[in-house]
Simulated assay, not measured.
Amino acid sequence: MTSQSTRETAATTAPPAPGGPSTRTKLGVLAAVTAVLAAVAVGYGLAADGKGRSAGRADGAVPLELTTDGARLLVVGDRYLNTVAAAEPDGPRQVGTLECVRSYAAGGTGVCAHPDTQWSYRMVVLDRELKETKSIPIPGLPSRARVSASGRMVNWTTFVGGDSYSGGGFSTRTGVYDTRTGQVLSTLEEFAVTRDGRPYQSPDVNYWGVTFTADDNRFYATLSTAGKRYLVEGDLAARTVRTVKENVECPSLSPDGTRLAFKEAVDADPAKGWRLSVLDLATMAVTATAETRSVDDQAAWLDDRTLAYTVRDGAGNPEVWSVPADGSGQGQLLVVGAESPAALR
């Protein structure tokens, strides 16, 4: 996630696999991380000073709720939680006081990747009234955040080395929090992997983009290893994952549980961009959406027919767009100056 994401930090300590990145490559990645972190620090400093915010942002803040009637959308606008009317997304916004770089909500539970300083972040879990119920320090720079449909399972992904999913020198950490039991799983990397029907182990395994099924135990995610990206189906209780299909990244399960929205690399080199597509889980058929721009995001389902996602305009500002999931129609701009959309069902 580069074009839409905030990036992630802290270098991996695992030794490179044979044939892995050279010292020169790793130094280049380190330099890129340093540059990204410096940019984030500057951006955070501006926000903390009140510069770069919309005029009256703090004074105009009002209490928000994670309503579940589908009437509003949750977004991050100008680094703060906002809600907009689903029927009038370009209309007036309710603006909260919680600063986030990523957010999501479902089933009356919210999650916010909150910056404590320019160098440290935590995942803040929120109840229906946006009151904090749990705070989890996280390593690196936040990239993805999701809540299961029931509101029970919260998950996140951070970059802890490198700054982009399109490069070969990145490393991620994907964690899960169970709001019912209070259990925090800091990484999926200890799960047993079955690749193409056989047990598989490698020090270069990375995960991102988790989406839970209705039972809050099975999940889908992206697994990266040996230069390939796989859709995996996981079992949280059993601590296992198995590969399902190649070239499926950042899956997002539809409300009816039959399809996965995902980003599909248009070439073997992900740096060339991704096409927002939909996978039918019964037939494994893939349908490309009408959105032809590169979408580097974990799309959200507004309903069983419509996807919402973030792209950047020509000046690099985030915008929330929507497009039909069946390949028809065309993309439509929903919310300017915003990202991390979630339908408050």
Rank of each mutant, 00 (worst) to 15 (best):
L276N: 06
S277D: 05
S277H: 08
L279E: 13
L279K: 00
D280R: 04
L281K: 11
A282I: 00
M284V: 13
M284Y: 14
V286N: 07
V286Y: 06
T287V: 13
A288T: 14
T289K: 07
A290P: 11
E291I: 06
T292K: 15
R293D: 13
R293P: 01
S294V: 05
S294K: 04
V295Q: 10
V295M: 11
Q298M: 15
A299G: 02
W301S: 05
L302S: 12
L302P: 01
D303N: 15
D303A: 11
D304I: 00
T306I: 01
T306V: 08
T306H: 09
L307C: 09
L307V: 00
A308R: 09
Y309L: 04
V311W: 02
R312E: 02
D313W: 03
D313Y: 02
D313S: 02
G314P: 02
A315R: 13
G316T: 04
G316F: 05
G316W: 06
N317K: 14
P318S: 02
P318I: 05
P318G: 02
E319I: 14
W321A: 01
S322D: 06
V323N: 03
P324H: 08
A325T: 11
A325F: 02
A325W: 05
D326C: 04
G327Y: 10
G327N: 05
S328P: 08
S328N: 07
S328M: 08
G329M: 09
Q330D: 12
Q330K: 15
